[in-house]
Amino acid sequence: MITLTHYLVLGAALFCVGLYGVMTRRNAIALLMSTELIFNAVNINMVAFSRFQEPGFAHGEMFAIFVIAVAAAESVLGLAIILAIYRSRQTVNSEEMKLMKW
């Protein structure tokens, strides 16, 4: 029997993988991919809560779909920015992207 706890543990694990990726990877594209993992960890939580706490309603699923849509848009923007940076600086290494600081 798969309970809410199983889903939450899966979500937390996925979140931690994503977080680890965001913290450790230097490749900007890998960063974007890691954030996708975090988004999806959240999505799993929402769908699971919706299913187990409010059976018969689809609020959580609705939010998950919104998040997927926003994540897709965000990926597009992120990739476009990375592409622009790559064109001007020939790198996708986040260590070398320190333009926005004091």
Binding site: L19, M23, L31, S94, K98, L99, W102
Partner: peptide, 17 residues
């Protein structure tokens, strides 16, 4: 506080999390 704004995305993410 200005010194903490290093420009490194990951350090920001670390701070947030």
């Amino acid at each position: 506080l200005r010194r903490t704004v290093s420009g490194t995305v990951q350090s920001y993410a670390l701070t947030v999390f």
